[in-house]
Nucleic acid binder design. Structure first.
Length: 830
RNA sequence: GCCCGGAUGGCGGAAUGGCAGACGCGGCGGCCUCAAAAGCCGCUGUCCGAAAGGGCGUGCGGGUUCGAGUCCCGCUCCGGGCACCA
């Protein structure tokens, strides 16, 4: 595509200029009102792909726009540089993960620069650098000290193909590994956890005030999964010393409990199992233990599950009725939630209903279902209704009955109100090399002991062997492994596990506020100044994990004293950018290479590619990369060519009095300024581009009229300059290179367009003078009449009724009603 | 199964309850040119009509309203999230 200007030369010139001038560097004591613009820092995977381009184009637009608004914008960037791909590459090729990663960082940094994205590069951080590791480890120690980090036995995901433990997020919905496709196994290992559950309620309730996309908030709410109910003891029949505690969200249904269930892993299974039942129970437990996720899923959908279970031989007493009911062991009850035991009420719970019918257990309804319920298939009824068969609860609605039943338990000291969460503590141990080492040592005498802070950072040695053994290479490195106990000085062994990389990304935005700090993770004053992030941009795939962890971490850092006074919510606005798809699927790497941004930087240039990403559709929507995409990108290049030619054209300019056409063009200019400003404020980037295109069309038509073939009075110098200046300003955050170049050529020696103030529209000119008034008869448009924008209701009606087209449409009928919305519309109803 | 989104020309997409289809892509026609490319101008929802003009039209069926792409109720299809959490 032949271009109107040397795109490559212009873009490189300005990229160099911004870097040399330090235009977007900001000091911590900057006096301007702050604005913190942040894109999720990327995992360095090599040159940018189109997903990056989209993300960082949105972010850069915000940085430049807010700067022109006069804010002191903090625009940092860094790299999420720990992670499995680098370690896998090391196993495969022998290259050290750091060498591999540093090379990928250089590539991605170069891509971002070519995109024209601007940052305060002095603040760049890499999560694998000792200067960052040190503080991640210190934070770990402080959380440990505060009881927010602890060690416990836990089942973990083990991938036999990768020979390593996986993070939960690396296990797909069907229980397979997202890299190798192998079925993930469960293993019990002692692991490190962060006590995120302490903050469950706060993390839940604070969501209400966040300006986030609703679906992201809903995902977090579901993930936290708060449920209110009651917990109480079921006395084991004939065993006054033994009871089973259960949790229920439906204490109102207690009179309908016809059996109880405990999880196969429940500690009381052995005690409750009679000799006669032992072999059946053992068989069930064995199967449950061996069972993998995928095998359980294969049983079918939950509603039709074979509710496998075995009778223990014991009975417990229903405290409400005094009746004994049988206790079963069944794998549909999970040890990890609630108490690992339930009262089963088949009439009001679908799972219990399925189990009860399969095992021939009685069913007692305690809520009156609708009259046609059983006729329409029946089953468990979980809706609202009147309580029945429930003694003192009879006649009540469910909400009242729940409260009454809970009170009844509390009065008798049998149980109490209880809130449970689906959210579990965050398992942070990883049996990997390429992550932040956990700063702990094991001493035979003193157990697990924290590494003293003055010994940080603990950095992994370079001379390790990368083998797919399923253990961190650190555990074979004698020099690293052996140390001394900080308490007694005796021989001790280092922790060889590293931290989940989500730990690194849970506080990087705080480090950005003060990346130079050498005596603490960051200066709280700097964090107080810049936090919270005013605009956070990144993929919705991080809606739960990263965003939840970061919200937890910010609170935890405040509470352990590392960030006093900092806002407890790190991200005020979150723009969840949509994914780029090809053929309806998420982009694969091989396909992604075909549309590599570098190719477009070389051909149409970064400005046109940016404009395309902004123009293609709403930023939160997924985008299909199709055959047509190429042509749309070229269209964006054509637009910039026209901009170039128009800005540098030299029509004959006149001065003096302005004509009506001059006035019309001026009004178009000011309306565009108003429209684009509004669009940028509401993230409607595609319409902002459209409005700029419209204005260029208007200005071009205006100029062309003066070429001799139009019927205008020619181009007025003031109108011409006002129009082009506004257009270049409005486009500056969108296509920064070409606008900077054109501005410089039109205003030699003056400050760059990027240092100009964002234009403000003249309200007088934004207001329309005349408006096309629509006249409807019975809601159908019959005429369009140009009227004064300030027309009165009476005049509007008069004009409407005088219209020949309206008279014809009325055909002599008398209006029964006239709805007037001057100056836009009059609707005549007959 | 449950919970969110979404459905508008050939395509991407615009439209505070008030002119549906802005802007762009593609297509058609024209100008320029020896010719092509580039550029420029015009047309481009659909049906009827030579035209003027008119009918119909925002997934489907109802409703509210003077007026519905927009609000309400009931579906269909597509996308996403969660799926034995008691």
């Amino acid at each position: 595509m032949a271009r109107a200007y040397d795109v490559d030369e212009v873009e490189r010139k300005w990229q160099r200029h911004w870097a040399e001038e330090g235009t977007y560097e900001i000091d911590n004591d900057d006096p301007r009102e702050k604005f913190y613009a942040l894109c999720m820092y990327p995992y360095p995977s090599g040159p940018a792909h189109q997903g990056h381009v989209r993300n960082y184009t949105f972010g850069d637009l915000v940085v430049r726009y807010q700067t022109m608004l006069g804010k002191g914008v903090l625009s940092p960037i860094g790299f999420d540089s720990f992670g499995l791909p680098a370690e896998n590459a090391a196993i495969k090729t022998g290259t050290h993960p750091r060498v591999f990663t540093d090379a990928r960082i250089d590539e991605l940094r170069a891509s971002l620069t070519r995109l024209g994205a601007v940052y305060d590069w002095r603040r760049e951080v890499h999560s694998h650098e000792p200067a960052y590791i040190k503080w991640t480890q210190l934070i770990f120690l402080r959380l440990w000290e505060a009881g927010l980090a602890y060690r416990a036995m836990a089942p973990v995901n083990w991938c036999p193909g990768c020979q390593t433990v996986l993070a939960n997020e690396q296990v797909l919905g069907d229980g397979t590994c997202d890299r190798s496709g192998d079925v993930v196994e469960r293993r019990d290992l002692e692991q490190w956890f962060f006590r995120i559950t302490t903050y469950a309620d706060e993390l839940l309730y604070a969501l209400d005030d966040l300006e986030w996309p609703e679906r992201a908030k809903v995902m977090q709410r579901n993930w936290i999964g708060r449920s209110e109910g009651a917990e109480f003891d079921l006395q084991v029949e004939g065993r006054p010393d033994l009871s089973v505690r259960v949790f229920t969200t439906r204490p109102d249904t207690s009179f309908g409990m016809t059996y109880a269930v405990i999880a196969p892993e429940h500690p009381l299974v052995d005690e409750l199992t009679t000799d006669a039942q032992r072999s059946a129970v053992e068989e069930l437990r064995r199967r449950a233990a061996e069972e993998t996720e995928i095998e359980r899923m294969a049983e079918g959908d939950p509603s039709a599950l074979d509710k496998r279970g075995a009778f223990t031989g014991s009975r417990v007493v229903n405290p409400f009725t005094g009746d004994p009911v049988p206790v079963y062991v069944a794998d549909y009850v999970l040890m990890g939630y609630g108490t690992g035991a339930i009262m089963a009420v088949p009439a009001e719970d679908e799972r219990d209903w399925a189990f009860a019918t399969l095992h021939g257990l009685p069913i007692v309804r305690t809520v009156q279902p609708p009259g046609d319920w059983d006729a329409n298939g029946g089953g468990a009824y979980t809706g609202d209704g009147v309580k029945i068969n429930s003694d003192f609860l009879d006649g009540l609605d469910i909400v009242t009955a729940k409260a009454r039943a809970t009170e009844w338990l509390e009065e008798r000291g049998l149980g109490e109100r209880k809130v449970n969460y689906r959210l579990r503590d965050w398992l942070v141990s990883r049996q990997r090399f390429w992550g932040c080492p956990i700063p702990a040592v094991y001493c035979d005498e003193h157990g697990v002991v924290p590494v003293p802070e003055d010994q940080l950072p603990i950095v992994a040695p370079d001379d390790v062997e990368f083998l797919p053994t399923g253990q961190s290479p650190l555990s074979f490195h004698e020099g690293f492994l052996h140390t001394t106990c900080p308490v007694c000085g005796g021989p001790a062994r280092r922790e060889t596990d590293t931290m989940d990389t989500f730990v690194d990304s849970s506080w990087y935005f705080l480090r950005f506020c003060d990346p130079w700090s050498t005596d603490r993770p960051f200066d709280p004053e700097a964090a107080r100044h810049f936090m919270p992030v005013d605009q956070y941009i990144g993929g919705i795939e991080h809606a739960i994990l990263h965003l939840l962890y970061a919200r937890f971490f910010t609170r935890a850092l405040i509470d352990v004293g590392l960030a006093p006074g900092v806002d407890r919510e790190p991200f005020k606005h979150y723009l969840a950018q949509g994914m780029i798809r090809m053929d309806g699927t998420k982009m694969s790497k091989s396909k992604g290479n075909l549309i590599a941004p570098e190719h477009y930087f070389d051909t149409v240039g970064a400005d046109a590619l940016r404009l395309f990403h902004l123009f293609a559709g709403p930023p939160f929507d997924d985008m299909d990369w199709s055959e047509q995409t190429e042509q749309v990108i070229e269209g964006c290049g054509r637009f910039l060519d026209r901009l170039w030619r128009t800005c540098l054209s030299e029509p004959d300019l006149r001065t003096g009095e302005q004509t009506d056409e001059d006035g019309a063009v001026r009004r178009a200019v000011h309306r565009t300024v108003a429209d684009v400003t509004k669009d940028l404020e509401r993230w409607s980037y595609n319409t902002a581009v459209a409005h700029c295109m419209e204005l260029l069309n208007t200005v071009q038509r205006y100029a062309r009229g003066s070429d001799g073939n139009g019927n205008t009075a020619g181009v007025h110098a003031d109108v011409w300059n006002e129009g082009l200046n506004a257009l270049l300003s409005l486009l500056a955050p969108l296509s920064p290179h070409v606008t900077a170049e054109l501005w410089e050529r039109r205003h030699p020696g003056e400050p760059s367009v990027h240092l100009q103030s964002w234009p403000t529209p003249d309200p007088e000119l934004v207001r329309q003078e005349t408006v096309t008034m629509v006249v409807q008869v019975n809601g159908k448009v019959r005429d369009r009449i140009e009227v004064d924008a300030g027309i009165s209701e009476a005049d509007a009606q008069e004009v409407a009724l005088a219209s020949a087209k309206v008279i014809e449409a009325l055909d002599g009928a008398t209006p029964t009603r006239i709805v007037s919305r001057p100056p836009r519309l009059v609707n005549i109803v007959v």
